[in-house]
């Protein structure tokens, strides 16, 4: 029979082993990407596990093969505009669903949540036809439109709005604010952590979006970073060192956004109002 202390020690070791394994699984792809970016294509194929000396060659190769400023501009424009629009539309909808409850609105909300169960692959063809008829194929608007009214984000904002004190809204009404002013001057600042968390999630999804831009963006001058890296990787003789340098560069903006807003992200996930 093991003593309580030994059981606690074994349990602690098992927990840390599991945590270590999961951490390794999370960190390994990033480490492999960073190592690969410093190695030649042959070394990457051979699975060389250590840093090499081909970083500058790979960077030069990437900048030679890709119009980096244009691709970054395309990607950033789509990511920032669609994130701002998603946040504006979803938070307004979430606020509305929570503050103005009625049976009909509840049914609409439930119906909207059902759309979360439809896989994007099932929507691609109808969406493509709609965009084609609207004359939007090969435009950035076509990339943004399907994502800006996100059922998940409306759900997220509605859940967060439940923690928004109704007395603040009452106090604002007594102070003379109209509903839109309460939303703009009270709700938005009070819920800023919720917005920060939503910003990170939507920005990352938008920045890394691949499938839908692949379908609607057809000319090189409209393409985003994920499409460009994908086309580099699918060349007849892909240079994996260059591809991984591109991947590292493409990761930097999302990393930057995350680290800048990390504190608000955690607060937002826990709830803005305490």
């Amino acid at each position: 029979m093991l003593s309580d202390r030994t059981t606690a020690l074994l349990s602690s070791i098992a927990t840390y082993l599991l945590l270590g394994f999961v951490s390794f699984l999370s960190v390994f792809p990033f480490l492999w990407m960073a190592i690969g970016a410093t190695n030649t294509s042959i070394d990457v194929i051979n699975g060389k596990p250590t840093f090499g000396s081909a970083l500058m060659t790979n960077i030069t190769g990437f900048f030679t093969q890709v119009d980096v400023p244009l691709v970054f501009w395309n990607t950033a424009k789509i990511a920032i505009v669609s994130t701002i629009l998603t946040l504006a539309i979803s938070s307004l909808a979430g606020y509305g669903f929570e503050m103005f409850r009625s049976r009909v609105r509840e049914r609409i909300y439930q119906f909207m949540l059902l759309t979360l169960f439809i896989p994007f692959a099932a929507l691609m063809i109808p969406l493509f036809i709609i965009m084609g008829r609207a004359g939007l194929i090969n435009t950035h608007i076509a990339v943004m439109l399907p994502v800006i009214a996100s059922a998940f984000m409306i759900f997220y904002f509605r859940q967060s709005t439940k923690a928004f004190p109704s007395e603040l809204r009452d106090a604002a009404k007594v102070d003379g604010l109209k509903e839109w002013q309460i939303f703009l001057f009270i709700y938005v600042p009070v819920m800023r952590s919720t917005y920060a968390a939503a910003f990170i999630i939507v920005f990352m999804l938008s920045w890394n979006n691949y499938l839908w831009p692949l379908i609607v963006l057809q000319s090189n001058d409209t393409k985003t970073i994920t499409l460009v890296i994908s086309s580099l990787a699918s060349a007849y003789y892909p240079d994996y060192g260059v591809v991984l340098v591109g991947t590292v560069i493409a990761t930097l903006p999302t990393l930057l956004v995350f680290f800048l807003m990390q504190k608000q992200f955690v607060q937002g996930m826990l709830g803005s109002v305490k």
């Binding site: 007395e167 603040l168 009452d170 106090a171 009404k173 007594v174 003379g176 604010l177 009270i186 009070v190």
Partner: peptide, 20 residues
């Protein structure tokens, strides 16, 4: 009449101060 035009002021249980 709108609450702000009734000539009233209200103090709430949870204070309802704007936290920002």
């Amino acid at each position: 009449v709108d609450p702000s035009k009734r000539g009233i002021a209200m103090v709430f249980q949870s204070y309802a101060l704007y936290p920002h």
